[in-house]
Design a protein around this nucleic acid. Sequence first.
DNA 1: TCAGAAGTATGTCTGTTGGT
DNA 2: ACCAACAGACATACTTCTGA
Length: 260
Amino acid sequence: MSSILRSSQLRNNVWSSFPVRFLKQQAGLSTAKLLGSRSCEIRHFTTQVQDLGKQVVDTATVLIFDVETTGFFHKDHRIIEFALYDLSGGKNSTFETLVNPERTVPNHVARVHNIGTGLVCRPDIPRFSDVIPLLLAYVRSRQAHGKPILWVAHNAKQFDARFLAQEFDRCSAPIPADWLFFDTLVLAKKMVKAEGKKRPTNLEALREHYGICSNGTAHRAMRDVMILGQVFQKMTFDLKLTYKELMNEAMRASEFSNVS
DNA sequence: TCAGAAGTATGTCTGTTGGT
DNA sequence: ACCAACAGACATACTTCTGA
């Protein structure tokens, strides 16, 4: 495996403590004190994370993930960047890698995420078949014994989960049966409907709605993952979603069986 | 009892939305 | 650029109610 993959896949960054460990570190501090800081990280945490967030994190491993691809259509296009973040935080809570799609990246798509053919179609960039064993090992290392993995993405149902399933299928690798997929777009639509208002439900709109600051390039996988991690917790809090309801909404990989 | 109006349920079509 | 899901608008069918 290339050194690039080794160095990028388990890269920790300043967000690696987000959010549970951070809260534990901040235990005893008042909400006012938390809110008082101008720190981006601190501003995201008032009192909202404790209930469902902790309940879910304690009951399943929640992995927020995002993929960048060569296009929209999972049957024709390929993943070129993969990022995930383990909501329980701690050391090595992120996994991020570029992926060699073994095909060109259309210019109109490259303009979206700034990942062009020259960046990923190189021998030192791993193919998804190289990434799968590392990903499986990484997920196993984060998984609590006997507890499922809950993969969370925005528009997972139509996009991210399908691409992931498609890539596993291409490599004839089965997706573990205890991997469940949750779509935050469905949640966002429910929330907007419950409000009786009409506003966009895309990730950028949700980020603005919750006043989440962003750093990094738009439409890059890890940046979107970090935003979604915060949006997910805030939405589940707003909707007073129980762990049971969350798991009921989750889909199994077999539900993307039209992958062929 | 019958005709017509009103209300409800269901199906179809179209436009919008979300992801890169 | 593609595809699927969804919401809303609209049409149609059916049921219920009212008055003659």
